[in-house]
Amino acid sequence: MRNVDMRTELGELILRNPVVTSSGTYGFGEEYAPYCPVSILGGITVKGITPLPRLGNPVPRLAETPSGLLNSVGLENPGLVEFRNSYLPKLALLDTAVIVNISGFSPDDYTLLASSFQKKDTGIAALEVNISCPNIKHGGMAFGTNPRSAEEVIEAVKKNTDLPVIAKLSPNVTDIVEMAKAVESGGADIISLINTLLGMSIDIQTQKPLLANKMGGLSGPAVRPVAVRMVYQVYEAVGLPIVGMGGISTWQDAVEFMLAGASAVSIGTVNFVNPLAPVDILNGIEEYCLKKGYRSVREIVGLAHE
């Protein structure tokens, strides 16, 4: 008998279960629909949106590394207007929580983006603020590595939207706790982490970087221990609910993140290998709770702490 309550609370954002998909790995929700019904998912996070359309970086944008993937897509996206006109109406029809990821190059960009998405926009559950993209030359990660700018950006977003605000943190910092405290002061409702780790790969035959953009963001199972550590540290230091991500590929990985302090888990790179991974992970978490005698998935959050 299935009697585990899988509902997940991230402050005022309530998800039907703790499994969501990560921005940049799940397109705009329609790509994976033939493989994995979105109605099973707790939510999806769409590709990062910037005020203006972006072509992104040149190819090659991808390099495979041991149990990992470097990418330098560079925030290719249709821009705010096109997103609202062409994509949002379709997203609103999906039977799952839709998290819109926004990305800017100045505080004004974030103000504009935040003010464009409100609760009255049916179909949007929350805004995830990307202050941590490693693949653009100006802005992006700069906001995510300086606590004061991170706080300012989150403040600007909070002031301009009534939706729950998720601050997505970059792992490319010396002290993740300092960043978490900064976005908490800025008014973030939820913290998600980690974004990709800045990395590089060089072709020893051509003796040049494999990525056209030279450097890129590392994701996949290779980054998982770093992500678990950061989720654990942030959980200890701030009171905000956490969406944990970084290389989650199995239900065991997801449980590990929840024990570290994540209320929800976000599934990214593994979708490329196994489009049904979110379903397997969801079933595995439920089974784990059942076997361990928990009546609610919320009970296992943070259990790794004293």
Partner: peptide, 17 residues
């Protein structure tokens, strides 16, 4: 031909201009 990850249009890794 291009380096590819998802194969179904979600990741934007394999674009051409």
């Amino acid at each position: 031909e291009e380096r590819m990850a998802c194969g179904i249009g979600a990741c934007l890794g394999c674009v051409c201009t």
